[in-house]
């Protein structure tokens, strides 16, 4: 029987995968992909808690997370395009312009 713990474990696993991406990658677009993975992992945990505790609040939180993720992507991609126009690259190491 699949319980809440199964879902929480897969959610933690996916979150860790996203975290590996955030720490490891140096490309800004790849960082965005990794944050999407982390947001989705949190959504799974919310939906699972909502189902097993018979409470709709978890699904509500998941909705607002999805809304925030959508607006984050809209603004973030605009910023990425600006950075690409300015520097010609999306590599984080090339953006370290404040190094004294």
């Amino acid at each position: 029987m699949i319980g809440l713990n199964h879902y929480l474990i897969i959610s933690g696993l996916l979150f860790a995968i996203g975290l590996v991406g955030v720490i490891r990658r140096r490309n800004l677009l790849m960082l965005f992909f990794a944050t999407e993975i982390m947001l989705n992992a949190a959504n799974i945990a919310f939906a699972a808690a909502s189902y097993y505790y018979n409470d709709l609040a978890g699904q509500m939180f998941a909705f607002f997370i999805i809304a925030i993720a959508a607006s984050e992507v809209a603004v973030g991609l605009g910023l990425l395009i600006l950075i690409y126009k300015k520097h010609g690259t999306l590599d984080l190491d090339d953006l370290a312009t404040m190094k004294g």
């Binding site: 809304a67 925030i68 959508a70 607006s71 984050e72 809209a74 603004v75 991609l77 605009g78 910023l79 395009i81 600006l82």
Partner: peptide, 13 residues
């Protein structure tokens, strides 16, 4: 917030 993000995305890109 979605409206602000839409306008911001359009202006930025």
């Amino acid at each position: 917030m979605l409206l602000v993000a839409m306008v911001g995305g359009m202006i930025l890109a």
